[in-house]
Computed example of a mutant assay.
Amino acid sequence: MNLEEARDDLAFMRALVSTTEDSQLTFGETYLACGLCYGGQMVMHGLQFLGWAPSEGQGALLIGFGPTAVFVALLIWILTRRRVAQAPTAVNRAVAAVFGSVGLANLVMILIFGLQAWRQQSLLIWLIYPCVVMVLQGMAWMVAASLRRKGWMGGVALGFFLTGVGMAFALQNLRAYVVIAGIGMLAFMAAPGGLMILQARRSART
């Protein structure tokens, strides 16, 4: 009886800390889409500074709101085309809850920073908001690294922290600010998303 209980406990612990291919693939696709959309937006802002992209009119409006529209469309497509067949593990639910909470916090911060920036007519206040977003993303990845016990996730968290600090130091230099933000989104959002997709597909083949 004790041996059977030990086996049951071991199976439970393995299920607790494991990740399902379905959930990892969905998360990776979502993160890759987000990184490419908003990293691409930073690239377009850089082209605006160089005079190679429109800074006013419909073109500028498209650069400002287009990435969000594309990301929302991709997110709906990702979530509706796949039905997760495997039940989420406790760690999956915890990680999803952390990133979901960060996303909700981002929406609340848009209201806080946006309202104050509008009242004070201050671009500086609004530019602080993405710095905080980077730090919150780093926090979420730090929690994921602790739960998953994967060192590369801790590296992603550190990358987000450094990106947020770098953007804060570049608040008075919009060109540097945009460059740092773009590199951060592509390196620590798009790249990890792509890595998770590859890992999930590799696990599905084995």
Results as ranks from 00 to 15, higher is better:
residue 68 T to H: 11
residue 87 A to C: 08
residue 115 L to G: 09
residue 115 L to T: 11
residue 137 Q to L: 13
residue 155 G to T: 14
residue 145 A to L: 02
residue 82 R to L: 03
residue 126 W to D: 12
residue 155 G to Q: 12
residue 136 L to G: 01
residue 151 G to M: 01
residue 48 Q to H: 00
residue 92 N to L: 15
residue 138 G to V: 05
residue 44 M to T: 05
residue 112 I to L: 14
residue 140 A to I: 06
residue 97 A to P: 10
residue 97 A to K: 14
residue 124 L to R: 15
residue 58 Q to D: 14
residue 96 A to I: 10
residue 172 Q to C: 01
residue 56 E to S: 14
residue 50 L to A: 14
residue 88 P to N: 05
residue 145 A to R: 03
residue 162 L to F: 12
residue 66 G to L: 01
residue 47 L to A: 14
residue 121 Q to R: 13
residue 114 G to H: 10
residue 70 V to S: 09
residue 175 R to S: 04
residue 102 V to S: 03
residue 158 L to I: 15
residue 44 M to P: 00
residue 57 G to N: 09
residue 73 A to E: 11
residue 146 S to Y: 03
residue 149 R to N: 09
residue 128 I to E: 07
residue 49 F to C: 03
residue 174 L to Q: 07
residue 51 G to Y: 03
residue 132 V to L: 12
residue 90 A to Y: 08
residue 179 V to Q: 00
residue 81 R to C: 10
residue 150 K to P: 02
residue 89 T to E: 08
residue 147 L to S: 01
residue 71 F to V: 06
residue 104 L to I: 12
residue 43 V to Q: 08
residue 148 R to H: 15
residue 141 W to F: 15
residue 47 L to H: 09
residue 125 I to P: 13
residue 147 L to C: 02
residue 46 G to Q: 03
residue 172 Q to A: 15
residue 71 F to E: 09
residue 147 L to K: 00
residue 104 L to W: 12
residue 128 I to F: 05
residue 134 M to T: 03
residue 68 T to N: 10
residue 180 I to A: 03
residue 145 A to T: 04
residue 58 Q to F: 13
residue 104 L to S: 06
residue 100 G to C: 01
residue 76 I to V: 15
residue 101 S to Y: 07
residue 134 M to R: 06
residue 44 M to K: 01
residue 129 Y to A: 11
residue 169 F to V: 09
residue 58 Q to E: 15
residue 107 L to E: 08
residue 167 M to D: 01
residue 52 W to Q: 05
residue 97 A to N: 13
residue 146 S to A: 08
residue 108 V to M: 11
residue 61 L to Q: 09
residue 157 A to L: 05
residue 68 T to V: 13
residue 117 A to H: 11
residue 134 M to V: 05
residue 123 L to G: 09
residue 43 V to I: 15
residue 169 F to G: 02
residue 45 H to M: 08
residue 166 G to Y: 00
residue 121 Q to I: 08
residue 123 L to W: 10
residue 151 G to P: 00
residue 120 Q to E: 13
residue 94 A to H: 06
residue 134 M to H: 13
residue 50 L to F: 10
residue 77 W to F: 15
residue 157 A to F: 06
residue 46 G to Y: 07
residue 114 G to C: 12
residue 51 G to C: 05
residue 178 V to T: 07
residue 122 S to F: 13
residue 140 A to C: 06
residue 139 M to W: 12
residue 47 L to N: 07
residue 53 A to D: 13
residue 113 F to R: 06
residue 79 L to N: 04
residue 178 V to L: 08
residue 60 A to K: 14
residue 73 A to V: 15
residue 73 A to W: 12
residue 107 L to T: 09
residue 104 L to R: 11
residue 73 A to T: 14
residue 129 Y to T: 02
residue 122 S to G: 14
residue 116 Q to I: 11
residue 106 N to H: 06
residue 121 Q to T: 10
residue 177 Y to R: 11
residue 173 N to C: 02
residue 84 V to G: 01
residue 162 L to V: 13
residue 119 R to A: 12
residue 131 C to N: 07
residue 48 Q to V: 04
residue 135 V to P: 05
residue 129 Y to I: 03
residue 103 G to I: 00
residue 94 A to F: 04
residue 79 L to F: 01
residue 105 A to F: 06
